[in-house]
Amino acid sequence: MSILKATSSRPSVSRPRPKVEPVKVFSFITLVVTTFLMLLPLFFMVSTSLKSKREMLKFPPTFLPESWQWSNYKDIFDTLQFGTMYMNSLIIAGLSVFGTLLSSALVAYGFARYRGKGNQFWFILLLSTMMLPYPAIMIPQFVLFSKMNWIDTFLPLVVPAFFGSAYNIFLLRQFFTTLPDELFDAGRIDGCGELRMWRTIALPLSGPALATVAIFAFIYSWNDLLTPVLYLSSSEKFTLPVGMASLTSSRFRIPPWHLLMVASVLAMVPIVTLFAVAQKQFVEGIVLTGIK
């Protein structure tokens, strides 16, 4: 009897069924549909990367490969010096990120912290360099680097990153100006010099901004095609975009889209990884500093 009682009393303690809010359902469905739409090109990229050369030419295109050509992922290494190109791209992009972060953060710190004469003027002058399109400086820069005997080395692709980038300096400067002066005053009282304040106060507090700059710099360098094409001549120094462009370079042949898609899938890995890691690391960074 008691058991029966207990059982029968159960409905009264159970939680009320959550109310279905039509707006929420609608947003949920919209989000899911949009996500699928956004993922569709990515899906086709992966799907094409697993198709055979013949199937790739089919119309209408098949949604999933008829026979899964996992060997495409091996073939790309035979078609291009894929491993070498991947490594070259990683080295160049890694050093460019380091260079951009170092130089841009230093310059931005200067612009944010010092109130000198003509401060605005210099800043505007710096920003105006953003208006210069690359083709305008392409030839003079090439002449300069070729006089320095830097052609067919990674130097012209990496060294400019160590001389700041106007866009990133602007971004970091805006962030640095939001840091409270009190922190730096406290640092000074404790005997910090400017460089130390930059390193121990400004940088640790600027995680999200630095992460943004790092991602921008990496993507810019990773995707850059024209600069490596101009400066590199030996195949073993080519970067990934140069190699991938060569796959579609023949006007007279059907491009091996399936291999190009393999290369694209693999080329996406570092960017996605960087994005995931940078997000997590730097968000943690700001939590640890205790400033909100």
């Binding site: 083709p135 030839i139 090439f142 002449v143 070729s146 094409v229 101009l230 140069v242 462009a245």
Partner: peptide, 18 residues
């Protein structure tokens, strides 16, 4: 060598750069 799309730009740059 250069990819098709950059062929002309690289040639002009190489010539201008001596």
């Amino acid at each position: 060598k250069a990819p098709y799309e950059q062929f002309d730009s690289k040639l002009q740059t190489l010539i201008a750069g001596g």
